[in-house]
């Protein structure tokens, strides 16, 4: 007995030796692991990640300036950015220390903000089963809001590969480190570049990514629900409920995805990846049982 709900089905147009069985349940097609890719995929990933570079440069600069003010050596600022690679987390840790907190409270504050990486990492995991632990650790190392967003959107194109993800990670990493260095060295001259609003690049990129990921009504509604929850949490915290802003993303995403899971029974609209050079065409199809 098949319900009459619209079902998203992946139709694979074989271009090479690719043979993904279209009779598999949709989610199994969808969880097809990404392939290793070629060196061309690596540069493609670097290009794909350019907006992240643009966004990280000014925010990294802002971090470099602050780090300098708080007595970080250039080396310490670079190692901090290069190992944590955590925008908000780094600022929070710095702010906690500046407010007189000790190392433990700073680390807890940072961990709370970065807990969302666990969720991102779990979400990406079904797609990376064929990637060796070496490259996988670089992909994990450079996993941020922005690289997660770009890579999950890219998986829909079927072109995403281990190397393209590594390229996205590298360009983001360079932007963050370069920004940190520039801010530390020239902060007193250039001032905080975010005051011009160029850090809006991240917000603009999230807007574009929302459109990229919004491929059917269920997904759109789920995304709008998550956004509404964030606004609701904001009003709640304004009204005196003790929820820190840093929890908003993870609470709203978990809640929206859970609600969507129970409301939308037959969904299969995760990022699509193909193991080989298959061109994947998504067709919305009415399942008449």
């Amino acid at each position: 007995m098949v319900c009459a709900a619209a079902r998203l089905r992946a139709t694979i147009l074989p271009m090479s030796k690719s043979t993904i069985d279209t009779t598999l349940p949709a989610h199994e097609v969808i969880a097809a692991p990404v392939h290793d890719g070629t060196s061309a995929d690596f540069s493609r990933g670097m290009k794909l990640g350019m907006p992240i570079f643009l966004g990280y440069l000014p925010v990294g600069t802002a971090f470099g300036i602050l780090a300098n003010q708080y007595g970080f050596s250039l080396l310490a600022a670079l190692v901090c950015s290069g190992t944590a690679l955590a925008g908000a987390g780094q600022f929070i840790a710095l702010a906690t220390l500046a407010a007189g907190g000790n190392a433990v409270t700073a680390l807890i504050a940072c961990a709370v903000v970065n807990l969302r990486y666990v969720l991102f990492s779990a979400t990406l995991s079904p797609y990376v089963s064929s990637i060796r632990l070496g490259p996988l650790s670089w992909i994990a190392y450079t996993l941020t809001d922005e690289s997660f967003a770009i890579n999950t959107a890219d998986m829909r194109s079927g072109k995403c590969s281990a190397r393209s993800m590594a390229g996205v990670g590298l360009i983001a990493y360079i932007g963050w480190l370069l920004g940190t260095a520039l801010g530390w060295m020239f902060g007193t001259w250039i001032g905080d570049p975010t005051r011009f609003g160029i850090d809006f690049a991240m917000a603009a990129m999230f807007s574009a990514l929302f459109v990229a990921l919004a491929e059917n009504t269920k997904q759109v509604l789920c995304g709008i629900l998550a956004g509404t929850l964030v606004c609701g949490l904001w009003f709640a915290s304004r009204a005196g409920v003790a929820i820190d802003q840093n929890w908003f993303i993870i609470i709203a995403s978990l809640a929206a995805a859970t609600i969507a899971l129970f409301i939308f029974k037959d969904d299969a609209s995760a990022p699509v990846t193909s193991a080989q050079d298959a061109e994947i065409v998504l067709t919305e199809e009415e399942d008449r049982g």
Partner: peptide, 27 residues
């Protein structure tokens, strides 16, 4: 991973994007 988890995970990217959009633009 069991199917319900996979389905649940399929909603995470769009949820995260909706939440980030709200946080960076709406708030």
């Amino acid at each position: 991973m069991p199917e319900p988890i996979m389905r649940w995970l399929s909603f995470i990217p769009i949820s995260v994007m909706g939440a980030l959009f709200a946080k960076t633009i709406l708030l």
